[in-house]
């Protein structure tokens, strides 16, 4: 009974992805001929070739990788020291500063999109990768919260001993604190990368030139085709391509993803 329900739920959950994969490997002429197969008789890469020939899919792939990586690096560079300070340093206004940052978790992602767009345009970042990357780094409420929790698990004595050795705050962070929370950092890297890989509305607005778009944005171009044979096959091929890296990362780093989402690192 338990298994029956779970199997059903799992099948429903995976089916759209499965159907996407099937379609991606079925030549588009067959896709449009209403001959249904749960798996193509002769799997073909034709859709991938069509997509790569007609659109700068390779550039999209590269942009997605670059943007996701830089956003992740930026977020960690900011959130890790902040989390450490909130966990182990005493200073005036600590609580206020902490909650100022953490409260941003309740902001809808696009609430400030109009002023942000104006600002980005004014500094000349429209249609640039920086325009996508820099504002995206700002969503660090969860990251700071998570890092503070992780650093808190480290015993205070660890740092007091270091202080005896005349280690300043920077050495404490780099040489003692960070090496002890590497699993947490790994978790955050993974979820940040996956999150940034999937940035959609903001990137759709900011990235104008086709060769600067990311996969998530480029996909949208396929839904805008008018007056023509539908391109479901190539579309699913690109969709699969856009899903593949996060699926792979998830498969390899599953432990860290689960840990990040459930706050249970190191148990």
């Amino acid at each position: 009974m338990v298994h029956a329900v779970l199997v059903l739920a799992a099948v429903l959950s995976v089916f759209p992805l499965f159907w996407m994969t099937t379609t991606a490997f079925t030549p588009n002429e067959l896709v449009l001929r209403k001959t249904f197969r749960f798996w193509p008789d002769e799997p073909s890469l034709a859709n991938f070739r069509t997509a790569f020939a007609g659109y700068p899919v390779a550039a999209w792939l590269w942009n997605s990788i670059l943007i996701a990586t830089l956003v992740t690096v930026g977020k960690l560079a900011i959130a890790v020291p902040a989390g450490f300070a909130f966990a182990h340093l005493r200073f005036r206004g600590r609580e206020a500063a902490f909650w100022t940052i953490v409260a941003t978790m309740t902001f809808p992602t696009i609430i400030g999109i109009v002023p942000l767009y104006v600002g980005i345009s004014m500094v000349g970042w429209f249609d640039t990768r920086a325009g996508v990357i820099v504002p995206s780094i700002a969503y660090i409420g969860f990251y700071v919260f998570f890092m503070r929790q992780s650093f808190r698990t480290l015993p205070r004595e660890m740092f007091e001993a270091a202080r005896m050795d005349a280690a300043g705050p920077f050495r404490q962070l780099l040489q003692i604190a960070i090496p002890n929370v590497l699993p947490s950092i790994a978790s955050l890297s993974v979820i940040s990368f996956m999150g940034a890989w999937n940035i959609y509305l903001w990137a759709l607005l900011v990235l104008d030139s086709p060769e600067k778009r990311t996969l998530a944005v480029g996909l949208k171009a396929f839904t805008s085709i008018d007056d023509h044979q539908p391109m479901w096959g190539p579309m699913m091929a690109v969709a699969l391509l856009s899903a593949l890296p996060v699926l792979l990362i998830f498969a390899f780093a599953q432990r860290f993803v689960m840990a990040a989402f459930t706050g249970r690192v190191g148990e």
Partner: peptide, 13 residues
Amino acid sequence: VVAGAAGLSAAAL
């Protein structure tokens, strides 16, 4: 995967 992606993007640019 990484090498492939780099090669592809170079080709596109």
